[in-house]
């Protein structure tokens, strides 16, 4: 297999059409390769999310009980989602900065559907830790949003990165308001 020195064709003297013979042998080996590749796909594809995992990809949550200034953490696809009922002060602060000057330029209104209800993935965009700042007792960082204790990233009240190693803002998951009080995430 490793050595090409004895291909069927080269040792062939008396077969009428050596090219034809080459073809069938090469084609057979090629077909074997094709077969292996075809079997390879299911073996790899099984690692992708299974049907039951995908079916859980949306979560509905009632946000009516979140008091102003409070936040809740819910699970979506096994990850925490922060939902914060922002005070008018927090909204004002988020709008006070010029979003285009930030590390990951984004205006606050581009990140919310309703200004009072901020929904972001609670996963630091640096290396995946969960930032602090959900509970009133926790450190919120220099910008009154969230602070990631792992490597010191500071997020503002819009979940935008302001200081520290994280490259981008906290991700906003796809969500829709089913009614005034129910949000479906995913």
């Amino acid at each position: 297999m490793a050595s090409p020195k004895r291909t069927p064709a080269s040792s062939d003297k008396d077969v009428a059409d050596p090219k034809k013979r080459d073809f069938i042998v090469v084609a057979t080996y090629a077909m074997a390769g094709l077969g292996v590749a075809a079997v390879g796909w299911p073996l790899i594809n099984q690692m992708n999310p299974a049907a039951d995992t995908l079916a859980l990809a949306s979560t509905e949550v009632d946000v009516s009980k979140i008091a102003e200034g409070q936040a809740i953490t819910i699970t979506w696809r096994g990850k925490p989602v922060f939902i914060r009922h922002r005070t008018s002060d927090e909204i004002a602060r988020a709008n006070a900065v010029d979003g285009s000057n930030l590390r990951d330029p984004e205006e606050d209104e581009a990140r919310v559907q309703r200004p009072e209800m901020l929904v972001v993935l609670g996963v630091c965009t640096h290396l995946g830790c969960v930032p602090l700042g959900q509970k009133t007792s926790e450190v919120k960082g220099d910008y009154e949003g969230w602070f990631c204790p792992c490597h010191g990233s500071h997020y503002d009240t819009s979940g935008r990165i302001r200081k520290g190693p994280a490259p981008t803002n906290l991700e906003v998951p796809p969500y829709t308001f089913l009614s005034d009080t129910i949000i479906r995430i995913g």
């Binding site: 796909w41 299911p42 073996l43 594809n45 992708n48 299974a50 049907a51 039951d52 995992t53």
Partner: peptide
């Protein structure tokens, strides 16, 4: 059963 029903190509494997 999850392999047979939900995992991608699980039934085949």
């Amino acid at each position: 059963e999850r392999i047979m029903r939900d995992v991608n190509h699980g039934w085949l494997i």
